[in-house]
Computed example of a mutant assay.
Amino acid sequence: MAMNELAGIADRLPLAWQIHPAPRSSTSEDLEDAIRDLTRHFTYLAYTVATRDRQAQRYPARYTPQLREGTAALARAATPAGRALAALGAAVTATGHLHHLTHNRPGPGHAEDLQHTLIALDGHVTQARAQLFTAAQQLRADAHRLLTAQTPPAPADLTTPAVPAASSSPRGRSL
């Protein structure tokens, strides 16, 4: 499901202690993978909404309230997913600046600039992670709401009648 995949992307983003200025750091590869995965899911959200809109126009009788609600839920997830993508774009910019700093000779203010860039990079990644978790939680809540709304109550004749509890007293038992 999209909610699990969005949360999975968030889980794979590097944490602050995993972000290093060293040239062999995997931060840029982690960001590349996250952006590729998120872009694929963002495209899925947009495609699904557009496809369902076309289906509603072509086959209005088949387009159920559940499909409308499900489509709206996917569309709502696009906002935090888009914000996460924007934060990852800013993280790429910070990674590029970090790359520049680590491959040039240190000059005046190098250590401060390096520290500031690491803090900014961590902030962008943290923001992306939070937005992805927001999207996943929102989808999970919408899915739960839709599933509970769809589940019809059990008919009275199919429910199991309550069985009286057996007495623990030896006098209440028949032999």
Rank of each mutant, 00 (worst) to 15 (best):
D33H: 11
L118R: 06
L38S: 10
A130H: 14
A50D: 10
D142Y: 00
R62E: 05
T160E: 14
A91D: 12
R105W: 15
A7F: 14
Q115R: 12
R36Y: 00
F133T: 09
L158E: 14
F42Q: 07
L98F: 13
A162P: 14
A10Y: 13
A111N: 01
R83P: 11
T48I: 07
H110Q: 11
T126F: 14
T160W: 05
T43A: 06
L118T: 08
T39F: 06
G89Q: 03
A87Y: 05
R173L: 11
P164M: 00
Q131P: 03
T71E: 02
S26A: 13
A34W: 00
L67T: 03
R105M: 14
A141G: 05
G89V: 00
S168P: 01
P21G: 02
A84W: 07
G107K: 00
P153M: 06
P23C: 04
Q138Y: 01
T117E: 05
A72K: 07
Q57P: 00
D11G: 10
G109W: 09
S25F: 00
A128F: 14
I9E: 02
T43V: 06
L45F: 11
L147V: 05
R40M: 07
E5H: 06
L67C: 03
A84D: 05
R54W: 04
Q115E: 07
P108Y: 10
A136V: 01
D142E: 08
E69L: 03
P153C: 04
H41Y: 13
A141F: 01
Q18S: 10
